[in-house]
Design a protein around this nucleic acid. Structure first.
Lengths: 139, 139
DNA sequence: CATAATTAGTTAGCTAAGCTAACTAATTGA
DNA sequence: TCAATTAGTTAGCTTAGCTAACTAATTATG
């Protein structure tokens, strides 16, 4: 087995258990990891349209529509008119911003436990490797 | 954003595009990435029962039943009696072994392209980080 | 040793997290 | 001006799981 194969193997083996555990951590906020990813994007990069969210997350527009609909229902985000009459800009509500802060705090020990025994340097390297792959794969 | 958050962010952002592209690569063999993961396990670790496959992949037994059913249909694997009358041991057919070799070869350039610009050392580090997380997360 | 508990596997039906196709409404460009 | 493009939606499908409830076989216990 080549090192490339090894890497993608480990990647796949980690994905499901991690996402399951993350979803458990998010349950009390009525969030799934996919919805949380949208909130994370909004807090990190500010308000964005649905198409921009879709592009960033590499998912299709209808998927974003549903994620955002759910987050609106929960009162975590709201949509406002964009520069177009077509465009809808999604932004966090004040309540949503509080929730995001709270979730960040709540997740901290979980993420730290997941990375226990891994040095900052190695975490950074792994992070860069993943970003690099995204870049290589894109298009 | 902490480095831990950054890492898991990159992880999530990479997952879908990578899996989509991998599924495209596997299409000509009538395989999905989940089925390919089973074949990979069998070629690497030899014949195993359904429960053993489930444990290794961190998925539930019914999910394995379906994956294996499909692989049997394709003629890539067969099941033989285990030491028990209950146990079914899954093993590659000679045809399946050929296919796995062929797929490995076919995927090589794809995986190399995905990891282009990443050093062997960094790939290894990232690989170890992922394995470490799997270990930390496990139950 | 009989029966209770456990284990391997299956079936049925559900869910998360996407997808494509086809549409409307608004905008842009030839 | 009207054709093409773009933002967003709805409907319905798919992958890759899941849980609950079951059968058949095995193991442990009173």
């Amino acid at each position: 087995m080549t090192i490339e194969q090894q890497f993608f193997n480990e990647f796949r083996l980690m994905y499901r258990p991690f996402t399951n555990q993350l979803n458990k951590q998010l349950e009390q906020y009525q969030l799934y990891s996919s919805q949380w990813a949208v909130l994370r994007f909004l807090i990190d990069k500010g308000p964005h349209s649905l198409v921009e969210i879709a592009n960033f997350m590499s998912i299709e527009k209808p998927s974003v529509t549903r994620l955002v609909q759910k987050l609106v229902e929960l009162g975590y985000v709201e949509t406002v008119a964009g520069k177009d009459k077509r465009e809808k800009v999604v932004q966090l509500t004040p309540f949503g911003e509080n929730i995001v802060q709270e979730v960040q705090e709540h997740l901290k020990p979980f993420l730290e436990k997941a990375l226990a025994g891994v040095s900052k340097q190695d975490t950074e390297i792994a992070s860069r490797v993943l970003a690099n792959i995204s870049k290589n794969i894109h298009q």
